[in-house]
Design a binder for these strands. Structure first.
Lengths: 147, 147
DNA sequence: CTAGTTGCAAAGAGTTTGCATGGCG
DNA sequence: CGCCATGCAAACTCTTTGCAACTAG
């Protein structure tokens, strides 16, 4: 219900460029595949002698998620949220992500079959899949072989 | 790495039947489809004048999850874990769950297409899907219509 | 009797909020 | 200058842990 308001206001909202905001965006741009926690970012900037308050990190991440630049999902161990760049160049906003529950690796599943999958779910189950948010859990080939 | 030990010790572990443990199992059995938080369970038993400590609820849920009777997953709003009976009679250990990000409803997607899906992912992406853990996010028909 | 279970309270982790200050445009 | 962003600390929420008391087998 609030979604509608947000969509409206996004257009009106000024786009301030602050040092911290830029630094965090930059961090994601430089490490496109990385899937990190708010704390990872905090520690990273600390180690670079570039202190950013944790609250600021959370607020920046929220903004990035709201702007659709970053995807937020939850680690399966629970508790802490993970953030990852939605890399439009790699079509991350379109394809699914397969996450190995053993090694944590993320596989980008970019193939024509996905369209079929979405079509099936839409037609037979009346459900519109949100690719950016969905993560499919399981075991990657290597880890499956080990077990 | 500890999984191996656990598997070993599960066999050796005595199976105590306590009032609280039973009550929680019973709760899931009586409400097979329900997807609840630890707090929901706490409040439920409070309202029934049957007090169970929260720590106990968490520990019981852990046991149920470890025994494969209950599935734990994380609400997308983050923060709190949800628990749901793995209802083998309904094939919940086999099919996917579609979760509407607007209304929270969970749809059990129980159809032959799933096999194709798993087969494709396995053959083309070398990935073994974990149905019990995977939740596909998106919008259900009703909510999609509203927006 | 013995080992797993419980309940309480306290500790912990991750995240959010209130408020004064700072800085972009 | 006005308004949004920041930083700090405190508050909050969900979960885990330590420990003494309890109880099923």
């Amino acid at each position: 219900m609030e979604k509608v308001d947000i969509v409206e206001s996004v257009g009106n909202k000024r786009n301030y460029h602050t040092r911290q905001q830029e630094a965090i965006s930059e961090y994601f741009r430089v490490n496109p595949g990385n899937c990190v926690t708010a704390d990872d970012i905090y520690i990273y900037f600390m180690s670079e002698n570039h202190k950013i308050g944790k609250a600021t990190i959370y607020r920046c991440l929220d903004r990035l998620v709201e702007n659709g630049e970053v995807k937020k999902f939850l680690s399966d161990s629970g508790g802490c949220a993970m953030y990852q760049l939605i890399d439009a160049d790699n079509g991350c906003d379109r394809h699914f992500h397969l996450k190995c529950t053993a090694c944590g690796r993320i596989i980008h599943m970019d193939c024509a079959f996905m369209n079929e999958f979405e079509k099936h779910i839409s037609e037979h189950h009346g459900f519109k899949v949100d690719n950016a948010r969905t993560v499919i859990y399981g075991l990657c080939g290597e880890c499956a072989a080990k077990i």
